[in-house]
Amino acid sequence: METRQKQLAAWCSLVLEYCRHHRLYALDLQEAQESVLFNNRQIQRKLPSEVVIIVLEELRKKGNVEWQDKGKNRCLVLWRRPEEWGNLLYQWVIKVGLTNTVCTLYELVNGEDTVKEEFHGLEEWLMLRALQCLQDEGKAEVFGVGEGQGVKFF
């Protein structure tokens, strides 16, 4: 049983690192099944889909995966949780002196000032969740809808 737990932990770590490296925020199980993540063509070995689901379920329990459908065919992968993204973003806000300043969502995700930051290019849904975490902590206020969304940092 201990060996199985170690294998599961290793797979979980591998999935998160793979997604982080390739900046993947979602996995389609059929596509993932054929990717190098779960399929080693050189030695002709493939992780069975039932085991892939077990690994992803373990990541769900840890808060790193959210299923997008009841059939467990697609999932969001949170290789960094929203509160972690929020903390990273807020550290940058403090560093560059943007407290008491309003920024648009577009500026944060795609702006020239954030190009060297890890959150540059972050998917909008995940940035919004990170900002919501900051808002819950009283560090920011999110306002607007769609293209006009912005945030004020405190």
Score class of each variant (00 low, 15 high):
1 M>L: 11
1 M>E: 07
2 E>P: 09
5 Q>R: 13
6 K>V: 06
7 Q>F: 06
9 A>E: 05
15 V>N: 07
19 C>N: 01
20 R>H: 07
21 H>E: 05
23 R>I: 08
25 Y>M: 06
26 A>I: 04
30 Q>N: 15
30 Q>C: 14
32 A>N: 07
36 V>R: 13
39 N>P: 04
39 N>C: 14
41 R>F: 11
41 R>A: 13
42 Q>V: 15
43 I>P: 04
44 Q>T: 09
47 L>N: 01
51 V>G: 02
52 V>F: 01
53 I>Q: 08
53 I>F: 05
60 R>C: 08
60 R>F: 04
64 N>Y: 09
64 N>V: 01
65 V>D: 00
69 D>Y: 01
72 K>H: 03
75 C>S: 03
78 L>E: 05
78 L>T: 05
78 L>Q: 07
81 R>P: 01
82 P>Y: 01
83 E>V: 13
88 L>P: 06
88 L>S: 13
91 Q>I: 06
94 I>S: 07
101 T>P: 01
101 T>Q: 05
102 V>G: 04
104 T>E: 08
105 L>H: 12
108 L>T: 04
108 L>P: 02
109 V>G: 10
111 G>R: 03
114 T>E: 04
114 T>A: 13
119 F>C: 14
121 G>F: 04
121 G>P: 03
124 E>V: 14
125 W>E: 09
126 L>G: 09
132 Q>A: 14
132 Q>G: 14
135 Q>A: 14
135 Q>I: 05
135 Q>Y: 04
137 E>W: 13
137 E>Q: 15
143 F>S: 10
145 V>H: 08
147 E>Q: 09
148 G>L: 00
148 G>P: 00
149 Q>Y: 08
150 G>D: 03
152 K>I: 14
153 F>M: 00
153 F>W: 00
